[in-house]
């Protein structure tokens, strides 16, 4: 690793005084794609939330050498974007407007009352919004209302909204939920191009579907009970018995049986 974009040192975090994640440390460099795996309730999402600054943490999280607790909300959102599940949508914004909201931290300085008959966003915003609407397969749906979308379509809208933020560190909490298999594969391809487009990008994702992990991630951090069980190359960790121990199920033989079915 040439550079250390993200350094996590003895970090603990949780809700209401109890630590769910205990004393974890890892570093990650630009261009890496890391999957955080582990059973339900082990603290995966909590790690993502503390990395994005939503919940406070003890210990150190340094981004480009700066502790994130010292960054303002605005500075942090220029660098980090967290994609998380949206539970329910009550208000019927159009797909285009919803995705455009992701440009907030880029053009929020322009505050004006004349906005009613104009728009705060400019050409760069429009280009970014169109680019990610197209890459998420939403361009044709741009005038639809988000209250009328299916779960998978809404998921893609929210993903596009994270992308237009143009973060350096993209945190994805179960991005493939609700997506059908073709959109799952398309998303993985898209994430690959996203990380390779620029050399200062880092992707960290929480996944439940182990089948999708090798296709995208080179590195896996395995968490159980709030501590890191293993951290290493995907090919090594997914095939070791650490993973079976973490999930409490015989993963390897399970996968092999699957393979037999598909390879016949």
């Amino acid at each position: 690793m040439l550079n250390k974009m993200l350094e996590v040192e003895n970090m603990s975090c949780g809700y209401g005084g109890t630590d769910i994640v205990k004393n974890i440390s890892f570093t990650a460099g630009c261009g890496e794609k890391i999957a955080i795996l582990g059973p339900n309730g082990c603290g995966k999402s909590t790690v993502l939330r503390s990395l994005s600054g939503i919940i406070t943490h003890k210990g150190e999280i340094r981004l480009d050498g700066v502790e994130i607790g010292r960054l303002s909300r605005h500075e942090l959102s220029e660098k980090v974007s967290l994609f998380s599940q949206i539970s329910s949508v009550y208000y019927s914004y159009s797909v285009y407007d919803t995705v455009e909201m992701g440009r907030y931290q880029i053009n929020s300085q322009k505050k004006s009352l004349s906005g009613i008959f104009g728009s705060e966003s400019d050409k760069t915003d429009a280009i970014a919004v169109e680019k990610y609407l197209r890459s998420m397969g939403l361009w044709e749906l741009r005038d639809r209302l988000i209250t009328e979308l299916s779960g998978g379509q809404l998921q893609r809208v929210m993903l596009a909204r994270s992308f237009v933020q143009e973060p350096k560190l993209l945190l994805l909490d179960e991005p493939t939920n609700h997506l059908d298999i073709s959109h799952q594969l398309a998303l993985i391809e898209h994430l690959k191009t996203w990380t390779s487009e620029s050399d200062d990008r880092l992707l960290i994702g929480v996944f439940h579907d182990l089948n999708l992990v090798p296709a995208l991630f080179e590195r896996v951090i395995l968490i159980n009970d709030g501590v890191i069980l293993a951290d290493g190359r995907t090919s090594e960790i997914l095939k070791s018995d650490v993973i079976s121990r973490a999930y409490g199920a015989d993963i390897l033989s399970c996968m092999r049986k699957n393979c037999e079915f598909w390879c016949d």
Binding site: R49, G53, I54, I86, S87, Y91, M101, Y104
Partner: peptide, 23 residues
């Protein structure tokens, strides 16, 4: 009226709004 953009973003969820950069 100066907070209409923040209102749009917050109305779709606090956590997401936070991540987009709204205080």
């Amino acid at each position: 009226m100066l907070y209409t953009r923040e209102l749009d973003i917050i109305s779709l969820g606090d956590e997401q709004a936070f991540s987009i950069g709204v205080n």
